[in-house]
Amino acid sequence: MATDIPHQTTSETTAGGELVRFEKVTKRFGATTVLDRLDFTVSQGKHVTLIGPSGSGKTTILRLLMTLLTPDDGRILVDGQPLDAEVRKKIGMVFQQFNLFPNMRVLRNVTEAPVHVLGLSKDEAVERAKGLLEMVGLGGKLDAYPTQLSGGQQQRVAIARALAMRPQVLLLDEVTSALDPELVAGVLDVLRDIARSTDITMLCVTHEMNFARDISDRVLMFDEGRVIESGPPEQIFGAPEHERTREFLSAVH
């Protein structure tokens, strides 16, 4: 199965090197400062989870990386390069609301970008897509339209779609919050598999603390636009130092 799973190790990125770097990044929306001179790095192959109360700026980080937003100040480096449309191709994203293209069948949702962005031949893209859809357990739904699938299935297609671009970094934006409770497990299982069996770098925002504990190498606790505490999951969940972290964790549990 591991062979199906995308991973990419280019010469510049040696394992353990820095892949994502935020330098004093500030983002404001009107009068509110969502990110305040934020510094943090994510190393190659690591799985980092952002937790914190809503409105604390977690999702903003993902949207900045996706260039859906631009920072007001500071720099963002990915793989050592400043973020632009070209560098963005190294990043994949899975959205809370899936955002599958409703006008395309499942298979084409997954092949569209590899064909038109990476320039893969149709056959190559189809082969890659089939492998990935098989992996997320939807090998039988290639010809379905997104509306014919359950939310959990749609989200798994969205994961396959993101992976088909062979990103170095996968951004996961509360990927289970729009799902009915009984569908959450299937999606998390797929992500757990990917986290274990590949060296893809993951940056997730989630409210699923068990999942965060399970897959993360490092957890960052956010509050009011800053990282107030970070460390391995055992430390953050087991013995949080900061008062706000303790409050937050007891509130979500």
Binding site: M66, T67, L68, R88, G92, M93, F95, E112, H116, M165
Partner: peptide, 8 residues
């Protein structure tokens, strides 16, 4: 956003 995320 999805189209952007896929660099289409």
């Amino acid at each position: 956003e999805a189209a952007t995320a896929l660099s289409l």
